[in-house]
Amino acid sequence: MIHESVLLESRTLRDSALERTEVLDRVKALSLLPDGMHVTTAMVAAYFEVGIEAIKSLVKDYRRELETNGYRLLTGEELRSFKDLSGIQSHTRSLAIYSRRAILNIAMLLRDSEVARQVRTYLLDMEYLARTRPVDNPPAQTDRDSLDDRIDQRITHILGRTVVPMFNALIETSGEHRRELIALRTGVQSIERRLRQHHARLQRLEGPREDRLLAGVMASMDAMNGREFEEHVADLLRRDGCTDVVVRGGPRDRGVDITGRTADGRSIGVQCKRFAPHLAITSPDVQKFIGAAKVLHVSEVALYVATCPFTRDALKSPPRAA
């Protein structure tokens, strides 16, 4: 299986990544309508280097999901107001527009596009970085400042020196749409701030990566339910020479999900936790497991397997967390 293809299959994974719209510009420059916030179907097709019909077919199949993330079909008065505000010259009776979230949503659904595949790969890399960063060791202020200095000057120039002044001029001369224009200007300024916040993480993706495969592995495990994850870990134990491997996960597992024997004959107890990357395994979690493994199950080896980070205190708790 192609590793980035897990995003094609799991809406839960897609929803978890929709805030990372900055990866669109990292993969390829995205042209926007004059409102600075939307694109048309033709512009989406041009970005992904596919035909317009491919985008229309995708919208037909996933319309409800895309509408949740900013896809809209404008008609009537709403269309006329949008044309007046954005300066679009069009005589069509309807117009489909897409927000950046909707475009990213399409990138996670579009199969026959190399650009979409690159976007999915970036998203999985960012997911992997989020998992491996220590949860209680934020970067020093000096580190953040040095990263901010390297923000793409083209983006900040367009947003700060072109788009915002354009809104300022429109606000001064507009009466009927003044409130809407002020709201749009605030949105653009918010986007600029978010680009700065995300830039530090994007810098990590620019160099060559030897651990790219791990991103797909982690995403594949995210698509599993709890029982499937336990069975997966059990298969890994058998692969590494363990015997008598039994999956015991459930309300009566007494704190240990898997038991068995190592290749050299020692008894082993395993705890499996398939948590989201923003959560963390704490020291009390590890200590509770140690008590169950050592006292209730008399395990000689205690192994804690999780898909989320461990706090520093948890990593110091014996046995070694994994």
Rank of each mutant, 00 (worst) to 15 (best):
E9W: 05
D15Y: 04
E19V: 03
L24M: 09
L32P: 00
E49N: 13
A54W: 01
S57H: 14
L58Y: 13
K60H: 12
K60W: 09
T68H: 05
N69T: 06
T75R: 15
G76I: 00
E77N: 10
E78T: 14
L79R: 04
R80K: 14
Q89G: 06
T92L: 12
L110I: 09
D125R: 04
D125H: 01
M126V: 10
M126S: 05
P138E: 02
R144G: 09
Q153S: 13
Q153E: 12
H157M: 10
L159N: 04
R161Q: 12
V163K: 07
E180Y: 05
T186W: 06
Q189W: 03
R196Y: 11
Q197T: 10
L202A: 11
L202I: 12
L205M: 13
G207F: 01
R209V: 00
R212E: 03
L213V: 09
A215H: 01
G216K: 01
D222S: 04
D222M: 02
E231H: 11
A234Q: 03
L236G: 08
R252M: 06
D253W: 02
D253K: 07
A263T: 09
G265D: 14
F275K: 11
I281V: 15
S283C: 11
Q287C: 02
H297A: 06
L303T: 03
Y304R: 07
V305M: 10
A306C: 13
R312P: 00
L315V: 04
K316F: 03
K316Y: 03
R320A: 09
